[in-house]
Simulated assay, not measured.
Amino acid sequence: MAKAIKIDNTDRKILRILQENAKITNAQLSKDIGLSPAPTLERVKKLENMGLIKSYHAMLDTHKVGLGVTTFVQVFISSHKKTCIDAFVDKILKIDNVIECHHITGSCDFLLKVIAADISSYQKLMLEEISEIEEISNMQSMVILSTFKDKKILPIP
């Protein structure tokens, strides 16, 4: 497990603000944190170089882009050998509609978050791609009916 990187309160402010609005200008960011633009930019670059800021993304409205069905899929694999796990992960990484893949503890081995245009597209994806992965022994799908919280902002300790 990676050790947490030590940061100060100004770095925490920068990270919180950038999580809320990654498109903020350096001038506005520097104003919001109380530093001049040059040191603010240096701090942001330092946070990027340290790996605390991994990337910047636009959060899209799934329904407006035509992706109306989101599911969680519990996956049970046939073997817990490293070769089996690696083979499964390699295949899952190639399926664009699988937007998250977590190796977990509990009753199943992996939890996938899968997105599709509609139920028939989802069914086709499951039948023709995901269920064809030979390392999978069983799956259980849970269709998301409503989402009440989908927070992408991490609470920085």
Rank of each mutant, 00 (worst) to 15 (best):
residue 46 K to A: 11
residue 49 N to Y: 06
residue 48 E to A: 02
residue 51 G to K: 07
residue 46 K to Y: 05
residue 38 A to V: 12
residue 45 K to V: 14
residue 30 S to C: 08
residue 51 G to E: 08
residue 62 T to V: 13
residue 51 G to V: 07
residue 56 Y to M: 06
residue 52 L to M: 07
residue 35 L to K: 13
residue 54 K to E: 14
residue 54 K to S: 15
residue 43 R to H: 05
residue 47 L to A: 01
residue 47 L to E: 07
residue 46 K to C: 03
residue 43 R to G: 03
residue 59 M to V: 07
residue 61 D to Q: 12
residue 37 P to D: 10
residue 43 R to N: 03
residue 43 R to F: 01
residue 33 I to V: 13
residue 53 I to C: 05
residue 45 K to I: 04
residue 34 G to L: 09
residue 36 S to W: 00
residue 46 K to I: 03
residue 55 S to E: 15
residue 44 V to R: 04
residue 47 L to Y: 07
residue 62 T to W: 11
residue 31 K to I: 06
residue 44 V to N: 04
residue 50 M to T: 09
residue 46 K to S: 09
residue 34 G to W: 09
residue 43 R to P: 05
residue 52 L to E: 01
residue 34 G to E: 10
residue 49 N to E: 15
residue 40 T to E: 01
residue 47 L to S: 06
residue 34 G to C: 07
residue 63 H to L: 11
residue 45 K to Q: 13
residue 60 L to H: 13
residue 60 L to T: 05
residue 45 K to Y: 07
residue 30 S to H: 03
residue 57 H to Y: 14
residue 41 L to Q: 14
residue 56 Y to I: 12
residue 30 S to M: 10
residue 52 L to Y: 03
residue 42 E to P: 00
residue 63 H to S: 13
residue 36 S to M: 04
residue 43 R to M: 05
residue 44 V to L: 04
residue 38 A to E: 10
residue 62 T to C: 12
residue 39 P to K: 00
residue 30 S to Y: 02
residue 52 L to D: 02
residue 56 Y to G: 02
residue 57 H to I: 14
residue 49 N to K: 12
residue 53 I to G: 07
residue 58 A to T: 02
residue 31 K to E: 15
residue 54 K to R: 15
residue 40 T to H: 00
residue 37 P to W: 02
residue 51 G to R: 09
residue 54 K to L: 14
residue 50 M to F: 13
residue 49 N to T: 07
residue 48 E to L: 11
residue 60 L to C: 06
residue 46 K to V: 02
residue 47 L to V: 01
residue 41 L to T: 00
residue 48 E to D: 06
residue 37 P to C: 01
residue 42 E to L: 15
residue 62 T to Y: 08
residue 47 L to Q: 04
residue 61 D to W: 08
residue 61 D to A: 10
residue 41 L to S: 09
residue 50 M to P: 05
residue 57 H to F: 14
residue 49 N to S: 11
residue 30 S to G: 13
residue 33 I to A: 05
residue 31 K to C: 07
residue 36 S to T: 11
residue 53 I to H: 03
residue 31 K to G: 12
residue 48 E to P: 00
residue 46 K to F: 01
residue 32 D to Q: 15
residue 33 I to C: 01
residue 33 I to T: 09
residue 37 P to I: 08
residue 36 S to F: 00
residue 35 L to E: 10
residue 39 P to G: 04
residue 30 S to L: 06
residue 36 S to G: 06
residue 63 H to T: 04
residue 30 S to K: 06
